[in-house]
Write a protein that binds this DNA or RNA. Structure first.
Lengths: 229, 229, 229, 229
DNA sequence: AATGAATGAGTTTTCATTCAT
DNA sequence: AATGAATGAAAACTCATTCAT
């Protein structure tokens, strides 16, 4: 019986595939360009120029331009799903959970600004199959938000007359719209922005009881603020 | 009776440019396709297919593909400016003006859904010159909104601690995000949607005094509603 | 009621599509190059050079390089099917029909030398769907030939011990191999070549009775010749 | 005694090239793919996939893609030349030699089916120099066959009116066409196929005298058969 | 012997635009 | 007003080949 330890690894293929760090570097370059020019208006040449290699060389890493978009969106989408799952673990009170949700969302968008913005803007450019595949992933922000608002209504803390589905869509749009102007280079920290969002969103849905409990709208508007950033 | 065969259809005037009705038809077709596929991903062929003519024929109406985008955005932008100017004429009370502003904005977005959506999404695809030219046009929604909020603060009806510039941007994003999901084919009428927006936005910025004056947040939330949809 | 005679033709589209003569010209150019270099080794550039236009211009006529191959093969295949159908109409005697079949086949191959050669060589380069579609077309030369040989056996004129399916394949290969060397520029006329083929093929399958009836193999070999070339 | 440390592993001889067995393996893989897809349509990637290594690694064995084709064709061509030389050694009678020639050819084609098919199909894809070099090699099948037929005519056993050059080309095409359909996986053994070919070819060229001598065409058709396969 | 990154030149295809009719 | 042929430039993608490791 041959000694397994001295026997060479099965002919040929360890086949590691491309270096994951280099791959990340390249996908990040693609994301930057997509953000600046838009996916469709970006050429493979634009990406390779940014990386500093020839355009043909990119096909070591992907099979098509769409693969770049897919990678960017898939990754941020998966992280977003994780993010949504973590929200509310711990927080019991609906308004506190709502505040936590908003803060988490703002932090997430700020932390993954490029990729998250691309996801919002360019999702429809993916092939139908890939859109479908990605959507299977899990609960969306809208759905999570809706659940919180429903809990809030049950607890009498969210205006009972609110159409929660519609409100969830509106609030999600409100939060997502930060990707249209927010820049990490500015002086506004994510938590400061979150404070503003939390204050505005909470008062926009709070019930009479919730306002009273907080000691008025203005009090409610700062109740969940982290304060000075 | 004159000979119909030799007489040109329209009385006297030599036809200088293309038939404006046909032009509108074609620009509308372009807008539809831009909305569906995005400007950059749309080819001249896509547009001509939609119209039912050959692509070369489009150059009777425009000098370049960008001209279509320019026409669409310029027109809706100009109308938006008009829209903004009209708001508040008449309304004296800041919260009433804020409500009127929101309603007008929702109505406008709903009425010009395709063009307004394109303007939001594709403005950056215009040449720098045209972007500049269009921006000269007049006050933006954000600026108009900011002015109203400032008046509201002066009148003690808007939370004095609110960062009005930031709030204006957030609220505008919130309103504009309706273009991402609203459809005139759905059962939700623009005024019904406006009612929801008005309620949420007003309570999100109202001062303690404003809430008290209205008889509570829930009352404030319906004070400016048109009601039954 | 409007007068149909004076009413203009329905807006826009007579849409004739490309000039069929020009199209033929271009497909013929493609066929020439495919013959010289092989389909896969031919670039779109090669074809456009032959035609004398830019490569992009070819896409007025086809949607892909494969379309050229399809057109060439489809057309010659359809004609071949027609050809096969016509053979034997009239001829009653099996050996006479066999001779007629061979002559027709040689004439056909000579008359469509380029396209028929391409069909034989490059059929497998078509997509699976197109191969399938074309094969649906009708009876092949092999099948037609087999039928004739079976009739010949029934009439006692073809060697009873002959495996007709195999013989049909062999004879078809023999006939088709002329595409590997035949040139219309040479001095050998199609009918002269057919005379040789007829003589060789008939004697290669004839029964004893057929030979006797003809007055010997050498007599049989010239019985169906057109003679003087 | 030489210093073992400086001496290469294998006794004396420095290793010049790659392992010949591995080389054969790789060339065979290339041949398989060339057969399936055609030379021009095959990429180096296709070959390396078949072997199970990366494409860059193939350049340890060859200097270019064409080298694969050259190796395949050169080898089979040289063997074919040998094959042709051996034919007729021993056989004295022209028809017996013709039968032996056909049998040898069929056996050869069956034994080297892949390489021989590639040689027939892809010879023209070699560079002009290599085509020239290979052609220098020796007598071709057509020439050998022509010589036999001429001997046959001299002996009165081949139809005197036969154009032997043309007949040789036709018969060679007939034999070679087996590469278009023959498969060693089928139930037809090479010698069975050779029996059919021998019978058909001999009767297709035999003189009256040869037929009479054999006792009729049908007798002639089986005279050189090996019989049951 | 093999890997995997990269090259550079090529391929097929797309597409905005022009223009004679 | 529209056609349809063509252009010319650029797009996405392919691929034989090289090379440092």
């Amino acid at each position: 019986m041959p000694d397994a330890a001295t026997e060479p690894a099965k002919r040929g293929r360890p086949r590691r595939g491309p270096d994951p760090e280099r791959f990340r570097e390249i996908v990040d370059a693609a994301a930057e360009v997509f953000l600046e020019k838009g996916y469709s208006a970006t050429s493979i040449q634009d990406i390779s120029d940014r990386v500093g290699i020839l355009k043909g060389s990119l096909y070591h890493y992907v099979r098509s331009k769409e693969d770049f978009l897919y990678r960017i969106i898939k990754d941020v989408y998966d992280e977003a799903i994780d993010d949504i799952r973590k929200i509310g673990e711990g927080e019991q009170e609906p308004l506190a959970r709502l505040a936590a949700f908003i803060r988490a969302h703002v932090r997430f968008a700020a932390a993954h600004l490029t990729a998250y913005t691309i996801q919002l803007r360019e999702f429809e450019q993916l092939s139908a199959e890939r859109r479908e595949e990605i959507r299977q992933g899990g609960e969306t922000y809208v759905e999570a938000l809706q659940a919180i608002l429903e809990d809030g209504q049950a607890a009498g803390l969210v205006d009972a007359s609110l159409q929660v589905r519609l409100a969830s869509i509106i609030i999600t749009g409100e939060l997502n719209s930060m990707t249209r102007w927010y820049s990490p280079k500015g002086s506004l920290e994510p938590d400061q922005l979150a404070d503003v969002y939390v204050g505005m969103v909470l008062t926009s849905v709070a019930s009479e009881a919730a306002v009273t409990k907080a000691g008025g709208v203005e009090a409610l508007r700062t109740e969940f603020a982290l304060g000075q950033g």
